[in-house]
């Protein structure tokens, strides 16, 4: 009522122009020029790379699906998955220990994080691999008492075991801090409410706190996962035949170093791209309660990326 009165009072019908429904976005010439220049530079660079014979693209194509490369790829992926799962589970335990009121658990967790974050992963891997020179025998004993069981270290800590243990423990230290940050980000009132409703601490954590913490845990965990894929290349130093090790073993024969490294690089990029898409789905899932219109999780960003 009032509005129409105001509009009518406007001289020369000026209000029609001001109705935002009629607005359009002005054409931004500068932006277009920038995009064209950028596209040209990228295309030109791609063309140069594609036609540079030193890159050896035919070699890249020939070895891309080579059985050695593929089996190396499986090793890298398998290591990543196993070490990441162990890292997350152990990290969660360490995070909870660090946040508990129990002094012993707290200091043990801090010590764990301090040590494994504070030393280079490469050194940790070499240590695990060479465990047998430090401790030739692994035994289960009662402290200062009799021995219950004993094994030869080399038979227990194979290169595979050394790689998994090394990667997982290192990962757990980082994941513990990420998870702790996530748990701390949840409103105190939520824990209190869960307790007031008679939930046990474990149930409150599992049903109420962790699902809410996921929103701040997922993005850095995606980061960790991608770092982990690349960190698995370190295990080539302990003679594990991962992706990097397998291309190395080929170029040691053929001396086609750059093309073989390109094979590895393209595989690493492919995997991380897939992980990025997966991450945006997971993020959308844990952000679904934020959507005002209450639609089920439909990750717009993810579908965008997937269609590229």
């Amino acid at each position: 009522m009032n509005e129409t009165a105001v509009v009518k009072a406007q001289p020369s019908g000026g209000a029609d122009f001001r109705d935002v429904a009629t607005a359009h976005t002005p054409f931004r010439t500068g932006r277009l020029v920038l995009w064209v220049i950028l596209a040209l530079v990228v295309a030109n660079f791609a063309w140069i790379v594609a036609h540079n014979e030193n890159f050896g693209w035919p070699v890249v194509a020939r070895y891309f699906f080579d059985p050695t490369v593929i089996s190396g790829l499986y090793v890298s992926l398998g290591l990543t998955v196993i070490a990441m799962i162990l890292g997350i589970v152990l990290g969660l335990a360490v995070a909870i220990a660090r946040m508990s009121s129990d002094r012993l658990a707290k200091s043990f967790a801090s010590l764990f994080i301090w040590f494994f974050r504070g030393t280079p992963l490469l050194v940790q891997l070499i240590f695990w691999y060479n465990m047998s020179t430090l401790f030739p025998q692994l035994s289960i004993t009662i402290p200062f008492g009799p021995t219950l069981a004993s094994w030869d270290t080399n038979s227990v800590i194979t290169p595979m075991a050394a790689a998994i243990v090394g990667l997982a423990l290192n990962e757990a230290a980082y994941m513990a801090e990420i998870i702790r940050g996530g748990l701390l980000s949840v409103d105190r009132g939520q824990t209190e409410t869960a307790e007031a409703f008679g939930m046990t601490k474990a149930r409150a954590l599992w049903r109420i706190i962790i699902p809410q913490a996921m929103r701040s845990i997922v993005p850095p965990t995606g980061n960790q996962l991608i770092s982990m894929i690349k960190a698995t290349s370190l295990v080539s130093v302990i003679a594990m035949a991962d992706l990097l090790y397998s291309v190395q073993s080929i170029y040691n024969r053929t001396f086609e170093i750059i093309p073989m490294l390109l094979v590895a690089v393209i595989w690493y990029l492919l995997i991380t791209s897939i992980l990025n898409v997966g991450q945006s789905y997971v993020e959308a899932y844990y952000g679904r309660s934020d959507r005002r219109n209450g639609e089920a999780a439909k990750p717009a960003a993810a579908t965008d990326e997937a269609s590229h």
Partner: peptide, 15 residues
């Protein structure tokens, strides 16, 4: 936790 199960609580901030 078991004792709390017969007591309902409503908070200022809803929670």
């Amino acid at each position: 936790a078991r004792q709390r199960r017969k007591i309902g609580m409503v908070f200022q901030q809803f929670n």
